[in-house]
């Protein structure tokens, strides 16, 4: 068995498990009782999505797809900081 066939089979096995994890994260993000729960679920889902995108770039054999993960990780951090700043500014009264 060559390296190429081995890696392809491995990623094909990992594919449905990742999708299952994303569906569970999305259920928590959709029904989260409070605001921080939803933001936390979106955060965890998107960081894992960034990891999955790099694995998929190996699977599709196209290295151009890789830099998307950097952009995704950085902008979701920005969303996190926006919401935290909004929640905290309401307490300070500003």
């Amino acid at each position: 068995m060559s390296i190429e066939a081995h890696v392809t089979t491995f990623i094909l096995v990992m594919f449905p498990i990742y999708i299952l994890a994303f569906i569970l994260y999305a259920i928590r993000a959709l029904k989260g009782p409070t605001i921080p729960d939803t933001v936390l679920a979106i955060d965890a889902m998107t960081y894992d999505l960034a990891a999955f995108l790099v694995v998929l770039a190996i699977f599709f054999r196209s290295p151009v797809l890789t830099p998307v993960a950097i952009v995704l990780a950085l902008w979701v951090y920005a969303l996190d900081i926006y919401v935290a700043k909004y929640l905290e500014a309401k307490e300070m009264g500003g």
Partner: peptide
């Protein structure tokens, strides 16, 4: 991303997220 358009993703993610 799955439709193989990484340039659109690079613009869509900063604007929409």
């Amino acid at each position: 991303y799955l439709l193989m358009a990484p340039d659109i993703v690079l613009v869509y993610v900063p604007v929409a997220i």
